[in-house]
């Protein structure tokens, strides 16, 4: 048994203390929000809620479940996530595979064309005008198409493809396998972990995104959840810049209860919280694959 010095003991205690502190700081806002969503509005206003629900009630959740616009937004977000992820994944695979093939003559120039877009972009306004010109404004496609190919994801996937044993692909080529079959029957079955990573990245980005919806969508029935959340969580009071005076007056009339805001937050992050612990290792894997190049 090693002898542990006093200094080392103090240091170890400090490390545990630091971790516990971090744990509390990270988790407290969530715990408070959960408790707030189950508490009565009066208790919340008085400041009685610190850790556990006070005057427990389900009123806030009833209000959320009865608000049809939240469910419309929920449905829209699911559409954006499913369609956006499907398009994004297919395009990412199709773009990454040729770039991973060392024999592909145009590999270098195309890589350069893609990488340049990570350093320089046209910016918000030209992209907005393009979306307008293409007739995508205020359509669901404006949410899923412009960002469908993320160059970062392409690089992640290409890096992974390149790490597969070259001999496999060479052998298949010699056997007269077409590139299409190599991709489908050899490369993809070996790449399930990176595919999971990419699916998660795209899906979470779609679930959490609000800016493209904010600038491209006018029709509230197409709003994704995050834009609806913005209405409930951010614009409920009159001081926000984006509010026009008329809407502000309306908002004051139907003051949204504090507990309802908490409940809305919980309802919107519940899917992520539920799947997150199981998927976390895939996210981390993505960072690692990226780190090889970064």
């Amino acid at each position: 048994m090693k002898r542990v010095s006093f200094g080392d003991k103090v240091f170890t205690i400090f490390c545990y203390f630091f971790c516990v502190l971090l744990f509390i700081v990270t988790l407290y806002p969530f715990i408070y929000t959960v408790s707030g969503s189950f508490s009565g509005n009066i208790a919340l206003t008085r400041g009685d809620v610190w850790l556990f629900p006070v005057d427990p009630t389900l009123e806030a959740y009833k209000a959320v479940f009865n608000d049809e616009s939240i469910w419309t937004a929920y449905g829209n977000t699911i559409w954006y996530v499913v369609v956006g992820t499907a398009i994004g994944l297919v395009l990412t695979i199709l773009t990454a595979y040729p770039l991973s093939r060392r024999t592909f003559a145009a590999r270098k120039p195309i890589s350069l064309i893609l990488a340049f877009t990570m350093f320089f972009s046209g910016g918000t306004i030209p992209l907005y005008l393009l979306v307008q010109q293409l007739g995508l404004l205020d359509t669901r496609w404006s949410i899923v198409l412009p960002g469908a190919v993320s160059v970062w994801n392409v690089i992640l996937m290409r890096t992974f493809f390149q790490s597969l044993p070259e001999e496999l692909i060479e052998a298949a080529t010699i056997d007269g396998c077409s590139e299409f079959r190599i991709l489908l029957q050899i490369v993809l079955p070996l790449s399930m972990s990176i595919i999971a990573v990419i699916i998660l990245y795209i899906a979470v980005a779609q679930w959490n995104g609000f800016f493209s919806a904010l600038i491209y969508l006018r029709d509230p029935t197409k709003y994704p959840l995050q834009l609806k959340l913005r209405e409930v969580l951010i614009q409920y009071d009159t001081r926000n810049m984006e509010n026009n005076p008329g809407a502000a007056f309306l908002d004051q009339q139907k003051q949204i209860g504090i507990s309802v805001r908490h409940a809305t937050i919980i309802v919107s992050i519940l899917p992520i919280i539920c799947v997150y612990p199981f998927l976390q290792k895939y996210f981390v894997k993505g960072v690692m694959v990226g780190a090889i190049k970064g």
Partner: peptide
Amino acid sequence: DKLLWLLITPGLLFVLVFAYFPMYGL
């Protein structure tokens, strides 16, 4: 490379339209 070109075209097209066209739009 014919088939590889076929595979990469859709993604390349997306990048040209949604990343390079806005640069021209500048």
